[in-house]
Design a protein around this nucleic acid. Structure first.
Length: 284
DNA sequence: ACGTCTATCTTGGAAGATCC
DNA sequence: GGATCTTCCAAGATAGACGT
């Protein structure tokens, strides 16, 4: 089951406390990356084909493709701080920060054991990000973003130590291709962009591009670009008074039928209702 | 890891209904 | 009466199975 993540902050990052249920729940995944820090209690962390016993101080890394769920022990419930954030936060800073989350790497690790210096370091950073995002003092988003990047670098340095220079160069190149692909899409989503255009840009076959896209973003090309277009349309609906048809086309949709279909299925209401609820007139 | 093939899914245009 | 929204369907795009 794919879970939809809404971010509570102006940058795409959430930090929240979570106490998993003491009985089995369905596995889920989401397009955000996730890091969970167990502050107390015991339990299990379940992935598709892996199961970890959890104790206080454990850290779990979850990428945007893997099905997972946490479960508490019956008489000693586990309590976590979870961070959810959009991969773009790392991608825009340094694409290599995403490597420790790359599932296809043979060194991908879900679990960082309690008591290790790495788990302790990450635990402190997660706690600080959580406190910043909750206190909302002046400049809290900047601090939260910086601490998240620090967390990313900490993971990256640990991860880097396990590779030869040759392996590392190869992986870094692959990461650069992902960045190039996503930036190409981000710059052109308001045009009638198709998968074949991205493939032509990279000089790849469409099948290869399609696979690569899904593998690295967790979404298909069409889902990814539709999300960008809907976000753009939402932004325009609440900030200007252009007709819905104009907004649809300037967001990158090629027909009104596609726009209404996509908007309704993603947002759960019509564009007009959305504008009524969150639009400019409501703000003044 | 990558290309080819193809079943399935999605889109865009048209027509029409509904809303304001 | 214009703007918004839905439905239908042919055409085109995409994802995944399969082969190398």
């Amino acid at each position: 089951m794919k879970q939809k993540i809404e971010y509570d902050n102006l940058i795409p990052i959430n930090a929240y406390l979570w106490c998993p249920k003491p009985y089995p729940q369905p596995l889920h995944f989401h397009s955000s990356l996730e890091i969970g820090y167990c502050r107390e209690g015991r339990g299990k962390f379940i992935f598709e084909n892996k199961l970890y016993e959890v104790r206080k101080g454990d850290v779990f890394i979850v990428n945007n493709t893997e099905l997972h769920i946490a479960q508490s022990a019956e008489h000693d419930p586990s309590r976590y701080i979870f961070l959810n954030f959009d991969p773009s936060l790392f991608l825009e800073e340094d694409e290599k920060l995403l490597l420790p989350f790359a599932y296809r790497s043979e060194r991908f690790e879900n679990h960082i054991a309690a008591g290790t210096p790495l788990a302790q370091q990450i635990g402190v950073l997660i706690q600080q990000i959580y406190e910043e995002l909750n206190a909302k003092s002046e400049g809290y988003l900047t601090i939260a973003r910086c601490k998240l990047l620090e967390l990313g670098v900490t993971l990256l340095r640990h991860y880097r130590s396990g590779f030869s220079n040759e392996q590392w160069v190869k992986m870094s190149n692959s990461q650069r291709e992902i960045k190039e692909m996503l930036l190409f899409v981000k710059e052109r989503f308001q045009e009638p962009l198709q998968l074949t255009d991205v493939a032509a840009h990279l000089d790849w076959s469409t099948a290869r591009t399609s696979r690569f896209f899904k593998e690295h973003t967790g979404s298909s090309f069409i889902t990814y670009i539709t999300q960008l277009r809907i976000s753009e349309a939402k932004k325009q609906l609440v900030t200007n008074l252009e007709s819905i048809a104009d907004i649809s086309f300037s967001s990158g949709f090629q027909s009104l039928a596609s726009f209404y279909r996509a908007f309704n299925s993603d947002v759960g209401m019509s564009p007009q209702e959305y504008r009524k609820q969150f639009g400019v007139k409501q703000l003044f």
